[in-house]
Amino acid sequence: MNFQAIRVIFHQEMLRAWETLFQSLASPVISTCLYFIVFGSAIGSRIENIDGVPYGLFIVPGLTMLSLLTQSIANASFGIFFPKFTGTIYEIHSAPISHFEILIGYVGAAATKSLIIGIIILFTASFFVELNIAHPVWMVTFLILTCISFSLFGFIIGLWANDFEKLQVIPLLVITPLVFLGGSFYSVNMLPPFWQSVTLFNPVVYLISGFRWSFFEVSDVSVGVSLAMIVGFLVICIAIVGWMFRTGYRVKQ
């Protein structure tokens, strides 16, 4: 293993976030605050409890996931896309480093960054609502698994994209709708039966449901299924990355 290489890639990626610290943190924190003010306080005060949980509190896990997913994908896809774009990737190709080590460096850094952001968002939320986490260990497990699998997903997008438009199209056209329709702001049970069934095809539903369960012990689908889904997603992402590296798809000439 080329541990030095993993170290410098990780370090370089973290440094990039550190240098744009304000942007890296301000945008998720500000948007979380806005959601709380609008949905939590203004509208939420007129909405009944959902599954026995006050609305302002109910949206915390979904909001956290919303940021986590966007941040993981953005960080990881940008991290690997940028060297491709500027051409500095030549150095990584010419270095004695395996694909696995490249992956650990970039995805590790992206996942770490979004984990930190997730924690900061939860901390911000605690100023608006009283957070009681029923299963802290599970909460952290879901958090970490989500960061890793969506950073991997972002990495795939970054490898695949050969222009800025492609880099943004998936997060914008796929992820944002999936998250909004994934039960961030409502319980799936509130939908008409037909849409409930449709919703079950949305993988984000399982993520948010499981994550919410770790807070309030209420969920739309069973926790086991949630966990299986996210692990499954992780495995699929690993398989895709492995395939891309093996075949050199959009990686090397």
Binding site: N2, Q4, A5, R7, V8, I9, H11, Q12, E91, I92, A95, P96, I97
Partner: peptide, 9 residues
């Protein structure tokens, strides 16, 4: 420094 590390030094 990045280059040096990348090459395992």
């Amino acid at each position: 420094s990045f280059s040096r590390g990348l090459f395992g030094r």
